[in-house]
Amino acid sequence: MASELAFPVSVRLDLESFGSLRRLEATGLSRSDAIRQALVAAADRLWEPEVLAAEAAELMNDSVDRAEMRRLDAELDGLDEPIGGVSDASG
C-alpha cells in the first residue's frame, strides 16, 4: 500500500487507540500500513449514505441544534426587511 510520496506524522494515542493499533498489527500489517489503512477506511465511512443519514437524524433530534437553527432562521428573515421602511419600487 506504500506510495511514492510519504508524509511523516506524529500522533499520541490513548489506550483504546493503541489497543486498536495493536490488533491491526496482529493481522500482519506494519504499523505504518495499519495506520494508513485505518485512516482511509475511517474517511471513506464518513461518506457512506447510512452514516450521513444517521448524522442527519442525530442533528434533527438535537434540541440545542434545532433551537440554534430557529434562532438563525429568525435572524436571517429579518435581513429581508427593507432598511428604514423603504421598499423596492419594483415589487
Rank of each mutant, 00 (worst) to 15 (best):
E81A: 13
I83V: 06
A2S: 10
S17Y: 03
E81H: 10
G91Y: 01
A26V: 01
D14S: 07
A26I: 05
D73W: 14
D80T: 15
L59D: 01
D62V: 06
A34S: 00
E68H: 10
L79W: 09
L46E: 08
P8N: 03
A53V: 02
R22W: 04
G19A: 08
R66T: 09
L39P: 00
L46T: 05
R70Q: 14
S32R: 06
V51W: 01
A26Y: 05
S3D: 09
P82Y: 03
V11R: 12
D62W: 04
G85W: 03
A56N: 07
A53I: 00
G78F: 07
E25Y: 01
A57F: 00
L5E: 11
E16V: 09
A6V: 01
E16L: 05
S63F: 08
A89Y: 06
R12F: 13
P82V: 02
L13H: 11
S90M: 04
L46G: 05
R36M: 00
G84Q: 12
M69K: 15
A26L: 08
A42D: 13
A38F: 01
S63C: 06
E4F: 03
V86T: 12
A26W: 06
E50H: 00
P8Y: 00
D62N: 11
D80Q: 14
A34H: 00
D62C: 05
S90L: 05
M60T: 12
S3R: 12
G19E: 10
V86N: 13
G28L: 07
D73S: 15
A38Q: 06
V40W: 04
S17N: 07
L5S: 11
S20W: 07
S90E: 07
M60P: 06
A43I: 15
L5K: 10
G19C: 07
S3Q: 10
L76Q: 15
P82R: 04
G78C: 10
G19Y: 05
R31H: 11
N61F: 08
R12Y: 10
A41Q: 10
A56H: 04
M69P: 13
M69A: 15
E68M: 08
A74D: 15
E58F: 07
L15F: 08
E16G: 04
R45S: 06
D44K: 08
M1E: 10
D77P: 10
S3C: 07
P8G: 01
F7L: 14
E16P: 01
E16Y: 02
S63K: 07
G19V: 05
A54E: 14
E75N: 15
E4C: 02
A2L: 06
I83W: 04
P49D: 00
I83P: 02
L46W: 01
S30P: 06
L79C: 08
R31P: 10
T27W: 02
D80S: 14
L52N: 02
L5D: 10
V64D: 13
L79H: 08
E58C: 08
A38R: 03
L52Q: 08
S30R: 03
D88Q: 02
A43R: 14
G85N: 07
D88V: 04
L76D: 14
M1Y: 07
A67E: 11
L52V: 09
M1F: 09
L29A: 06
V86R: 14
E50Y: 00
P49Y: 00
L29C: 01
V11T: 12
L24D: 03
A38E: 03
A57L: 02
D77R: 14
M69W: 15
S17T: 09
S30W: 03
E81S: 12
R36F: 00
D62P: 06
V51C: 02
S10H: 13
